[in-house]
Simulated scan of single mutants.
Amino acid sequence: MPQDPQTQKLNFSAGLASVSVAGTLVVLKLWALWATGALSIAASLADSAMDLLISCAGLAAILYAARPADEDHAFGHTSVEDLVSLGQALFVAASGAAILWTGIERLIAATPPDLADEGAGIAVMIVSVLLTAALVFWQKRVAARTGNKVVSADMLHYVGDLIPTCGAILALWLSARFDLARADSVIAILAALIMLRGAAKIFVASWHALMDRAAAPEVIRSIAEIAEIWPGVRGFHDLRTRTAGAKIFVQLHIELDGAQSLEAAHAIARSLKRAIIEAHPQADVIIHMDVWQD
């Protein structure tokens, strides 16, 4: 089922906003890192650099996934969302591991590194928080209206980014106010652990989707409840689902009265299909009709 133009436009706007914000933050944090030398800013910069790669890949995935099914991709192109998410997870994990290693080295060093111009660094981080919060607000609105998996995942990722960014502000403030330079390394390590945890969650979710894992239990239960009470359906079996990106593929066998006309049987199947799609707009539904046996 191809996306309508309004849905495509909203998803594209969210992806473009993500790329724009990530690019702006990379430039600002590069300058802040040069001015301060703070590892916590380096952690935040690495996260923003990963965000830029992820956002670019996400925007490409949004555009590609919106393409309708064709001869070579009869079930559409939405699996690209899961493939891109898998790559994103590996990038984030590598970045988090590098920050974690450097943070531990600095923490156990005999002399903590000197930080400079903490005020400038704090100013950049505050701008980063404001830009990220505005982006999250827009992505949340788009995800609520379109249900796009890439936009939703990107939104959650940027919500997680607010934590290390606020941590960098705290580290710079502690260094400037109390001369606690080691706080920078501690907060960078915590930020790296958060990045690794997020990467693991993204990787697992994408892996399951690429392995054709069934839809969430509540979705399967909802479909079964609709079929169970649908007028004209005497029973059902072989309810199967799989996910690909934002789509849910559903196959269902329903049992119908064999004495009724073929036209009446098809009418029941069509109405049931519409009801399932109305409850789950991202569903692609195939219904098989069998003769009910008493």
Results as ranks from 00 to 15, higher is better:
D117K: 13
A205M: 00
S85D: 08
V19Q: 10
G23M: 08
P5K: 09
A259H: 11
L131K: 01
L130P: 02
L180V: 15
S222V: 09
I220V: 13
I99A: 13
A199P: 01
L172C: 09
R67G: 10
V142I: 06
A116S: 15
W138K: 07
G76S: 08
H253I: 00
V26K: 03
R274K: 15
A66Y: 04
A267I: 02
D51T: 02
Q3Y: 11
M211A: 04
A283H: 07
H208M: 03
H253V: 00
G167V: 13
A35P: 09
L107V: 01
A110M: 01
W207P: 00
R106V: 00
W34S: 15
P68K: 05
W138I: 09
A61W: 00
N148L: 02
I54T: 12
D4P: 05
G147L: 04
V26Q: 03
S206V: 01
T102G: 11
Y158D: 10
V26F: 05
K29W: 02
R197K: 11
A283S: 13
D4I: 05
I202Y: 02
V159F: 05
A171G: 10
L30C: 14
I287T: 10
Q293E: 05
H266T: 00
V142Y: 05
L262W: 14
A153C: 03
V21L: 11
V204W: 01
H208S: 03
L28M: 14
A264C: 04
D82F: 06
R274N: 09
V291W: 00
R240G: 13
V124R: 04
A144Q: 13
T243A: 11
I286A: 11
A120M: 12
A22Q: 07
S128H: 03
A244C: 06
V21C: 10
G119P: 10
V92M: 12
S85E: 10
C56S: 11
L16T: 15
T102R: 14
A275W: 01
A123F: 14
V80W: 03
A200I: 04
I226H: 03
S175W: 05
S48D: 02
A181N: 12
Q8L: 12
D82A: 14
G121R: 10
K140I: 01
F75L: 15
T78K: 09
M195L: 11
A200N: 01
T78H: 12
